[in-house]
């Protein structure tokens, strides 16, 4: 009984923190979890039909992601933390956003020379896989401010 009451109180407390702490973000790639139910101010996602921003209280939305930049603003007014994702899906509702990426790396970890080499290798082929690889390399280059 006591445990039940404690659980209920906790749940209430959590709802309260949701309202004050902003958006609950989960952001993970298969082998790495970057954030799990962490409070952030807002997040910008590279949706297949265009980039979109999410803050707390967003209407429910499921969207596929294209290769691009996920920008997480931890506190209002701060510089966002940027990640490159190669694709995936994002689910948003009023309280939380779950971003499931195929592959995600911090923007500052991207090596320009390697991106160029990757693009050069992928541009040679003409099947679907190498086209996708070329697109991803292009998006990665754009994310770090290089045009290929």
């Amino acid at each position: 009984m006591l445990a039940l009451r404690a659980a209920r109180a906790l749940r209430g407390a959590r709802r309260f923190s949701d309202a004050s702490g902003g958006l609950q973000l989960s952001f993970a790639a298969p082998h790495t979890v970057y954030y799990f139910e962490t409070s952030v101010a807002s997040v910008t996602l590279p949706g297949a039909s265009g980039e979109y921003g999410v803050t707390a209280g967003h209407s429910p939305l499921a969207e596929q992601l294209r290769p691009g930049v996920v920008a997480i603003t931890h506190k209002q007014g701060e510089e966002p933390e940027k990640f490159f994702v190669s694709g995936g899906f994002a689910f948003t509702d009023a309280e939380k956003t779950e971003v499931s990426a195929l592959e995600a790396v911090k923007l500052e970890d991207i090596d320009e020379a390697k991106v160029r080499a990757e693009y050069a290798a992928a541009a040679k082929g003409d099947d679907d896989d190498s086209k996708a690889a070329a697109d991803a390399a292009k998006a990665m280059a754009a994310a770090i401010g290089v045009t290929l």
Binding site: S59, P60, L61, A62, E63, Q64, S100
Partner: peptide
Amino acid sequence: LTAYDADDDVLRGLREYYLATEIF
């Protein structure tokens, strides 16, 4: 995904991704 706003293209891609995620 009736609770979410998602178009058919997203759902089609999602099934593949869902399956891969479950297998993984």
